[in-house]
Computed example of a mutant assay.
Amino acid sequence: MKLIVRVDDLGFSEAVNYGIHKVLKEGVVTAVGLMVNMPVAEKGYQLIQDSSISLGLHVNISNGPPVTSGQLPTLCNREGTFFSSREINQRATDTVDLEEAITEIDGQVRRFKEITGKKPAYMDGHAVTSPVFFKAISQVAKSHEVFDVQFSQDWQKETGISLAKWFKPDAHGLYNPLTYLIEDQGDILNKACAMVVFHPGFLDQYVLTHSSFTTIRTLEAEALCDPILKQWIREQQIQLCDFSDWEVRA
């Protein structure tokens, strides 16, 4: 079987940047998502720019400032930064405005090109579960001819890429990423092509105050570099690939 190992949140903070850099050098990763609106996004890219991975746009409308100038009242608070994903996701109705989202996402594609000198290999959304947000990503991805990564059952059937089942957290909200993989708790080994998503990184004050993923990031960073995982991949005859390596079914 083929496996896409995707890690998200490059650019989220300096500690996350360095954690992802370590995993790319020493671990098992095939795709990385860059959050281009964050202050340390460019530094994050500079750390990993020589890595032979698929670099995508991890579209972010819930942390930091927008890249778009002007008013975005459904996306930003009075301070001019994005509403948090928790605040957006807990609203009784989807308040994200489609045109505002398209404007910001299109701006993030342009910012990605400014930082990297190329268009994203793929696009996906960070943290926010708004259907309008997903629709906006799809429309912008189509306009820029970028592969749109979604989590829906329809998308999985259309592409032939199966999303691994999410981990089951323990009483402390944590899990063992190595056990999750080698015991196939994500149900990937019987698939032709699967995608598993991680958020590896180190910790700094920004992560501790702006993310629900803290210790999990360090656990995933360690697991993705573990020789036991690399041996398991060899034993299972898993072929690591990225989105360009997988022939998407029409």
Rank of each mutant, 00 (worst) to 15 (best):
L3Y: 03
V5N: 04
V5M: 09
R6D: 03
G11E: 03
V16M: 00
I20D: 01
V23E: 04
L24Q: 06
E26W: 06
G27E: 11
V32C: 13
G33I: 04
M35R: 05
N37C: 13
V40Y: 02
L47W: 10
L47E: 03
I48G: 04
D50R: 14
D50L: 03
D50W: 02
S51R: 11
S51L: 02
S52E: 14
L55N: 09
G56A: 11
V59D: 04
N60H: 04
G64Q: 07
G64R: 07
V67W: 03
G70D: 07
G70W: 15
P73F: 11
C76N: 04
R78P: 00
R78A: 12
G80L: 12
T81M: 08
F82D: 06
F83H: 15
R91P: 02
R91K: 14
A92Q: 11
D94P: 05
D94I: 13
D94M: 07
L98M: 09
T103D: 01
E104Y: 13
E104W: 14
I105G: 02
G107E: 09
G107D: 08
G107C: 12
V109D: 03
V109E: 02
V109M: 00
T116W: 10
T116K: 11
K118F: 10
P120E: 03
A121T: 11
M123W: 01
M123G: 11
T129Y: 07
S130Y: 12
F134G: 09
I137N: 05
Q139S: 02
Q139C: 03
Q139Y: 06
V140Q: 08
V140R: 07
S143L: 02
S143C: 02
F147P: 01
D148L: 06
V149D: 10
Q150S: 14
W155Y: 13
Q156N: 08
K157E: 15
T159L: 05
G160Y: 08
I161M: 04
I161K: 04
K165P: 00
W166H: 03
K168D: 06
A171N: 02
H172N: 15
L174Y: 06
L178F: 13
L178Y: 07
T179M: 08
L181K: 00
L181T: 10
I182R: 07
E183W: 07
E183L: 10
D184A: 09
D184V: 14
Q185N: 13
G186A: 09
D187R: 14
N190A: 11
N190K: 15
A192P: 01
M195V: 14
M195L: 11
V196Y: 01
V196I: 15
V196W: 00
V196T: 15
F198V: 01
H199V: 00
H199K: 01
P200K: 06
P200D: 06
G201W: 03
L203Q: 11
L203V: 13
D204W: 04
Y206Q: 13
V207G: 01
V207K: 04
L208R: 14
L208V: 08
H210I: 06
S211Y: 08
T215K: 15
T215L: 15
T218P: 00
L219S: 06
L219W: 07
A221E: 07
E222N: 10
A223W: 01
C225N: 04
P227D: 04
I228F: 08
L229S: 03
Q231C: 05
C241S: 13
C241V: 15
F243R: 09
S244W: 04
D245P: 02
W246V: 15
W246C: 06
R249S: 09
